[in-house]
Design a protein around this nucleic acid. Structure first.
Ligand SMILES: [Mn+2]
Ligand SMILES: [Mn+2]
Ligand SMILES: [Mn+2]
Ligand SMILES: [Mn+2]
Lengths: 233, 233
DNA sequence: ATCTAAAATTAGCCTTGACTAATTTTAAAT
DNA sequence: ATTTAAAATTAGTCAAGGCTAATTTTAGAT
């Protein structure tokens, strides 16, 4: 339907502008995500504007139109369904998922999407813990906190890890920091020092930077959807 | 690895030049298969020559180099493995296979190819009866005859049907002309008239043109690999 | 209010792979 | 041996999506 390039731009804009508040993505940030030059981004933004995919305020940033958001979410849905299928059905290992999905997301048909969705029993999360947007383009919004920001002592469950660096994922697999794993944070060393956590039956130190990329839920939130939390505090 | 376009050209050249003898594909024939203009083909042939994929004798035709053949066969292998997987595992219907495979064949990885091959138990033929080239690039060569050329009366088994027209496949499905089905040819009407065949428990007339596109094996060949046939005649 | 560095845009170039129109080559018919 | 029609090639154009280099805008520091 749309080109691989257009879909990748829309995905990048979606992720950057939903990252926080105002919702504008900058040219530079898009360029970094997609590993192209800023000049290429500027040009593409004009084309996307003409296509009705974005609102672009020159020198200020871009936002998706509802049309652009629809395509972005469809692509993200396909990406995450693909990752889930490759993992669950074809036996891909964790770190091989992303690159295959990154390409195939642009080339499967509506039918293929529907077939793997069905084969998986209509999953809601991919293997990295990322939510899968619905067919109608609803993305469940989630409130996770970074492991690095958990107050100590705290008991948490891993909800989500980044999907795009195979090396990082290999490390996480090695130490057992996978989605759905619970752990206790015993101590955080000051001056951005490492965290000391209990993982299963052993202790483990985790660098602050790594801990900033792992998203967790508090144990209590899990049991009661976060309501008790509010009443108690 | 190579672009979709390059792989489609190589596939087209492979099929056209293996169709018969000498093994040269003409510019016009390639243009017709790929539904592009001859001028576009001429230009691409020069690029393929530079890439070492073809030998092009100007105004005479092209042949694949061993390099070109390797890529063509890899693409055909992926196409047919994909069709088999979509059919056997994902429950695609017959006529939906080809268009999905035609695109995905260019975008799956070596790993994806290996995984679906394994999941299918290393199949040798796709749902249309076409042989799947081996990973090493060996294509089993097959000697089928067109149903239209069977001598009457003759008993045959359908080996292979064309894969690329969904409408044609729907018709074949409707009348039950599927690979592995046996039938008897009772009569061929003269002047390129229709064939009268027995299909299961009923008689069926088949136009000569349709019968020219269905490839069959003689019943005896099937049982004894064709040897008895030679001894008897 | 001015200066400056970072960010963004513009201008101009390249490759891929289409297209049309014009030209050249080939091969078959006279 | 010419003529001619089909096939093939060449020349020139276009859009997509990259790039570098040059220019413009913005926002923060003085
Ligand atoms: Mn991913
Ligand atoms: Mn992608
Ligand atoms: Mn096919
Ligand atoms: Mn194809």
């Amino acid at each position: 339907m749309y080109t691989e390039s257009v879909e990748n731009y829309l995905k990048a804009i979606y992720k950057l502008s939903s990252r926080q508040g105002g919702g504008y993505a900058s040219t530079k940030a898009i360029a970094e995500v997609l590993e192209v030059r800023s000049a290429s981004v500027s040009k593409m933004l004009q084309r996307l504007e003409k296509m009705g995919m974005v609102h672009h305020r020159s020198y200020q940033g871009v936002q998706l139109t509802s049309q652009g958001r629809r395509i972005a979410l469809r692509t993200i849905r396909r990406h995450r369904l693909l990752e889930t299928y490759l993992y669950e059905v074809l036996g891909y290992s964790w770190e091989q998922l992303h690159s295959e999905a990154e390409l195939l997301e642009h080339y499967i048909s509506d039918l293929f999407e529907a077939k793997i969705d069905e084969a998986l029993g209509f999953p809601t999360h991919d293997p990295h813990g990322d939510p899968i947007p619905s067919k109608e383009g609803k993305m469940p919004d989630i409130q996770h906190i970074a492991l690095a920001n958990v107050e100590v002592p705290g008991e948490v469950v891993i909800a989500r890890v980044p999907d795009s660096s195979a090396q990082f994922l290999c490390y996480l697999k090695e130490v057992g920091l996978l989605p759905k794993v619970s752990l206790k944070v015993l101590r955080k060393e000051p001056f951005n020092g490492p965290l000391l956590v209990v993982l299963g039956d052993r202790e483990q130190v985790i660098g602050r930077e790594v801990a900033g990329k792992i998203w967790v839920k508090k144990k209590r939130d899990l049991i009661d959807g976060g309501r008790i939390d509010e009443e108690n505090s």
